[in-house]
Design a binder for these strands. Sequence first.
DNA 1: AAGGCTCCTGACTCGCCGTTCAGCCAACGG
DNA 2: CCGTTGGCTGAACGGCGAGTCAGGAGCCTT
Lengths: 226, 226
Amino acid sequence: MGSRPKLTRQRRMEILEAAVEMIVERGLPETRVADVAERAGTSAALVLYYFDSKDRLLTEALSYVEDRFYLQAFHDLTGIDSASERLAVLIARSCPPSGGDANGDWRLWFELWTRALRDPETARKRAALDRRWRATIADVVRDGQRSGEFASVDADDLALELASLIDGLAIQVVLEDPEVGPDRMRRICLEAAGRALEIDLSAFVPAPSTMTAPRTARAHVSAAEE
Amino acid sequence: MGSRPKLTRQRRMEILEAAVEMIVERGLPETRVADVAERAGTSAALVLYYFDSKDRLLTEALSYVEDRFYLQAFHDLTGIDSASERLAVLIARSCPPSGGDANGDWRLWFELWTRALRDPETARKRAALDRRWRATIADVVRDGQRSGEFASVDADDLALELASLIDGLAIQVVLEDPEVGPDRMRRICLEAAGRALEIDLSAFVPAPSTMTAPRTARAHVSAAEE
DNA sequence: AAGGCTCCTGACTCGCCGTTCAGCCAACGG
DNA sequence: CCGTTGGCTGAACGGCGAGTCAGGAGCCTT
């Protein structure tokens, strides 16, 4: 199998990338194949040629970003050994930027959630992704407890609490509630985590200069599945 | 003005009610006027006769449920004098029921969030509603602090934290993550609030029998606006 | 050179759905 | 009675957008 699918791969990627952009801009249900085609610089027919239907296109686009997100998160966390710092970084990179510029990832989660309400397949994948994410947090917590940095609380409960707190706050930030900006979001998350773990995390927050995401993770894995 | 708008009022309500049901079932963007008409037992033309366009219909439907939600919440909280109990009730009634039956309100918030991503009007109204909601929580917190039940923390910060935690957890529950059910959600919220306020809230949780919402608030106010 | 294969496209079909319109019917006022 | 008004509708219109199809242009093999 797979004799010379070089160009095919490339094209599929380009189209997926275009699809993601369009979904962020126009929303999942109102994204038209023609939009994606135009953004990718080709014809609508080609898009349907690679992905048999609009629905499959959108589904693959969502899996694509899910993979990308998790790899990015994983990447950002490796190389840091202090559990406190890992937790602080994890929180910091979860805060959507203030301007309506690059919070595209969060916008995608919104779309994912509403789609998951009706599409069981999406629901399954989303739940799996979120479990992995919470497990990552829980691991950091356990690390810190082993090293004595953190107090002893149930790591899974705290992971769920933190992940949920982040989600809920991100909603406000992304929707530009004037009372809730990224700074306040970060502070509240750090305080909540610190309160539970009995530690002051504010000292571990990374310099904001390196905070902007390192662009293009170029994920070479396909749908991780559970 | 308003000579005999009796039937008109009635019909408008029926249609709005039908619209809300359809939005919960099919989702905001894929709700068709014909669906709403059928559910309301009339013709599509009539729906357009009362509400000039599909867009206006959906907008009004959303305002309608926003009002209904807030009145319901307000109603559930009056008559309880202990701040601790008020807080526990507030948390308890925020947990979506387990089955996919009656968590319609939460499904609507999902739709609202994604719509707010692109429609500034929706965004404004949503932000106002959420601010009111957080203010309600903050008031309860301040009450408890005045009475000495709660420790002294910033009430507004804690209100934001709690409201966000509830939102984030509700996402998992509504999307039926097998690891996160209503019970665990309630427990986590109570623990988080208790940790911040230095009090054990678990004793104040209301009997689960009276937990199911008292049906039909019959809001007679129109769009509260900010 | 010829054939075949892969990638690609413009132009079309077809169903769906919001919206419009011309008019119906029942009540009611004079 | 008859006219008018208010509530209501079936039928038609029109645009939009997903998916199809017949073919075309380049490249690789033989």
